[in-house]
Design a protein around this nucleic acid. Structure first.
Lengths: 207, 207
DNA sequence: TCTTCAATACCAATCAGTCGGTATGGTGTA
DNA sequence: TACACCATACCGACTGATTGGTATTGAAGA
């Protein structure tokens, strides 16, 4: 929230999109009411339907909003400066761990949550979530590929697959965190992922 | 579904619980209507409210139902016969891969889905899901502990933490599968997890 | 005056839950 | 055997609240 939400007093449209990220991550897609979004955004229903045709229309835009917000966040993150591509990847995961602060809905993934709920009923929205998740994974893929050639890894797994695996671990970590009611278990899962990557790229273990 | 659903012509109560597992995994918790469950179970609303006080009451029972169904499934699974505890663990994951068949809602985790959606609003139900997930993880913990001592692993990670990590990977794999619209990516994530465990327990890599 | 944005009252559909009543089968008793 | 009595299971029309969406009006800037 504190991270992903734009400045106060944005225009109504942006405030509604910000509210969608907040409220949906707390209550889920179906349970989120249009009135919830309006009151969270401090906006009336008339304004809502001026800017969006329907709830689903807003949600589709909200996925795009999520994508640009997170895109900016990771683009500005510190881990890109490192020289070694493996170090960049590991620093990315440290950065993900640093984001595990505040209440749980603060750091869980909007796209992942919606994918779960909307899978059967809103294919368009799920497709947008897929593009967001895969697009983010793609930003790791380059580093992974570079690390593979730098460390001379000839593997039966692909850079793309490993990048997606990191996202799977993160998504799963969020669920476990919700189940356990705390971020600690999520951090532990990320630690396991870091350990895996280190083992994978240690020169003794080329598979 | 084909796996987790009891025989036809059970009593109405059991049919409603089976329907809950099916319908919720397809449509999500909030989007599941009582009428959906009734028509899926071939039962009337009157019958529903004869057996359950409310929707939430049924859902709480459904988590217990899920727990016993999956408990039986894994108790009867073939991987327990192996002598080596690490082999048992790896065979468990192969078994999980074998379960990735049919439509996506067939093999996703009821408890994990509900945890996502109900986290803020139904603490009791989430607590039941947590017990189910952690209880399942606990069945792996013994094997992990045994493998640690057999392979002489002195680690900074715990058997419990690693067991929970396997569940996190599975949960995340399900989300990615829904995003990508197929089970393949989930299998790939499980492969990465298997590779991690092998590296972790290979005697060259004691951390 | 025309367009953009927003406020409020309102509508129709949906949905969780209620309620009065029925069907069936078991048990005790004469 | 026959009858009264009761409990469990079930039925489905109905209700009141919720909710997505609409219609109407107003206000401010260009």
């Amino acid at each position: 929230m504190v991270i992903f939400v734009s400045d106060k007093q944005q225009d109504s449209r942006t405030r509604l999109l910000d509210s969608a990220l907040r409220v949906v991550r707390a209550k889920g897609y179906s349970a989120t009411r249009i009135d919830d979004l309006c009151s969270d955004a401090g906006v009336t229903k008339g304004s809502f339907f001026h800017h969006f045709r329907s709830k689903d229309d807003l949600m589709l835009s909200a996925v795009g909003h999520w994508d640009t917000m997170t895109g900016n966040l990771f683009a500005q993150a510190p881990y890109h400066h490192l020289d070694d591509p493996l170090e960049r990847l590991l620093a990315y995961l440290e950065f993900r761990k640093d984001l595990l602060v505040g209440d749980l809905p603060n750091f869980t993934c909007f796209a992942g949550m919606i994918t779960q709920e909307a899978y059967e009923t809103r294919p368009e929205i799920v497709a947008a979530c897929e593009r967001s998740i895969s697009g983010h994974a793609a930003t790791l893929e380059a580093d992974i590929r570079e690390a593979m050639s730098l460390y001379g890894i000839q593997a039966e797994w692909s850079a793309e697959g490993l990048a997606l695996h990191t996202q799977a671990v993160l998504q799963g970590a969020f669920i476990l965190a919700k189940a356990k009611g705390g971020a600690a278990i999520a951090a532990e899962s990320i630690d396991h992922l870091v350990r895996y990557l280190k083992l994978l790229f240690s020169t003794h273990n080329q598979t």
